[in-house]
Design a protein around this nucleic acid. Structure first.
Length: 430
RNA sequence: UCCCCAGUAGCUCAAUCGGUAGAGCAUUCGGCUGUUAACCGACAGGUUGGCGGUUCAAGUCCGUCCUGGGGAGCCA
């Protein structure tokens, strides 16, 4: 007997096949029973009619509980009554395991309950769709940098100190000393550009900030490219092409998932480079004109970002922030030394900042001064400063948050659904 | 760290002015030959998050703690 997957069931029309999976739901009407099977690739209904199937199999259906694992064998046929197009006429079934009473019913549940049962919630259709989109986004990222000749440089997760010296870090014992979980791979990437020219890293990052919003996780994944000889404009261009590539890939590969999630695809179809662009200074002026409280020199809050995002249909690039609110490693703007050559990309529809990046300062003496001025221990950064001692070149890069990108493209209301096992404030289980 | 909201059956929720704690789903049992979160009938299921207070009487009011949710700040 051929064993098949539900996703390829149309190939087997008129044939007998075996499908292996879990019981999604069952219904009974006395002499006719329906079971819905899921196998990780899709759903299908199998029908058993009393008298047309051996009684021992017909009676066995009665014992099946939600999420019991089983193998069903029968004939595949097209059926207009099925929402999936095909159905199986059941001939026999084999129980692998009768599931205990399953906590997640087909009815409504609260977030807290579902998060306690995250390991089971993963089986639900909506969660599967979002995580399939995450999977394709990651695949598109790998492909984008592979096609462009970037080399993957994995940055360490255990690090001796803070990258920016500001955010709170998770601390852990490291034999006789302390280590910290990485909050960015950037500092480790910069030396690598002198070895490979174009590099990127992609891995988990950790922030011990007590953030508790739908846009924050304590552990999240970030992809960070870094390119030798790229300036501010090159950096923006790379970011725009990168995001456009991801969106086009997801539209091509995940149409079914986007439809199932009722994501408005027309909004994603507008995401093409170049994006909307505004300088920090212009954005502040326009916000003021719209009656929103802000002063030049303030950093943008969530509300500001949402308003700025609403000015464009594409994502928007905000560039050239005041130097005093940005980290030491950013290159000063060529025309105004109070500004830095940085850029953030804000996703539309209120999904917030998905990219933050800059051209990096490649002047040794100026960088040293800024390290000292920000109260950071110079000796910890000597290795990093070496990038500016041995053939220093202009270079630029940025970081893109995977979960925020997944949330945006999938239309998820909360970032916790965009990663299989979210690590959140006050939630480390399961 | 701060602000707001919520904890009642396994799950989702009701309970009027403070007056005997209720429904749907799930489970169990019975019925039904095309169901789509099937439907119909029945059984069972409770120290109303903890502690203290007010009251003749507290799920309900007050205090406090715990847990969870949303947001701010910070960031991706």
């Amino acid at each position: 007997m051929t064993t098949a997957y539900i996703s390829e069931i149309s190939k087997y029309e008129g044939q007998d096949v075996t499908l292996k999976g879990w019981l999604y739901n069952k219904r009974s009407s006395g002499k006719i029973k329906f079971i819905i099977l899921r196998d990780g690739t899709g759903l299908i209904q199998a029908v058993a009619v009393k008298g047309e199937i051996e009684d021992k199999y017909f009676d066995l259906i009665e014992e099946l509980t939600q999420e019991s694992s089983l193998a069903v064998t029968g004939t595949i046929r097209e059926d207009k009554r099925s929402p999936w197009g095909y159905e199986m006429t059941l001939k026999s079934l084999e129980v692998v395991h009768i599931a205990e009473e399953y906590p997640i019913s087909l009815k409504e549940h609260g977030t807290s309950f579902l998060m306690d049962n995250r390991h089971l919630w993963l089986r639900s259709e909506g969660q599967r769709h979002v995580l399939r989109i995450r999977h394709e986004i990651i695949q598109s990222i790998r492909q984008f940098y592979y096609e462009r000749g970037f080399t993957l440089i994995d940055s360490p997760i255990l690090t001796p100190a803070s990258v920016e010296g500001t955010s709170t870090l998770f601390e852990t014992d490291y034999f006789d000393g302390k280590a910290y979980l990485s909050q960015s791979g950037q500092l480790y990437l910069e030396p690598a550009i002198a070895a490979f020219g174009k590099v990127y890293c992609f891995g988990p990052t950790f922030r011990a900030e007590k953030s508790k919003t739908r846009r924050h996780l304590q552990e999240f994944w970030m992809v960070e490219p870094e390119v030798a000889f790229n300036d501010h404009e090159d950096n923006i261009k790379l970011a725009e092409e990168f995001v456009s590539y991801i969106v086009a890939w997801v539209l091509e590969k995940c149409g079914r998932e986007l439809d199932a999630l009722e994501r408005d695809k027309t909004k994603l179809e507008k995401v093409k480079a170049p994006f909307g662009r505004v300088t920090y200074t212009d954005a502040v002026e326009r916000l003021k004109k719209e009656g929103i409280e802000i002063e030049w020199g303030d950093d943008f809050g969530a509300e500001h970002e949402t308003v700025i995002g609403s000015w464009f249909e594409t994502p928007v690039v905000i560039e050239k922030y005041p130097a005093k609110i940005k980290p030491f490693y950013m290159q000063p703007d060529a025309e105004n030394p109070d500004l830095v050559a940085n850029m953030d990309v804000i996703a539309p529809e209120g999904y917030g900042e998905i990219i933050g990046g800059s051209q990096r300062d490649h002047d040794l003496e100026r960088l040293k001064k800024k390290v000292i001025a920000q109260g950071l221990p110079l000796e910890s950064y000597e290795w990093y400063l070496d990038v500016r001692r041995y053939g220093s070149v202009p270079h630029a890069g940025f970081g893109l948050g995977i979960e925020r990108t997944v949330a945006w493209l999938s239309g998820s209301k909360h970032i916790r659904e965009t990663i299989p096992y979210p690590r959140m404030l006050y939630r480390l289980y399961p």
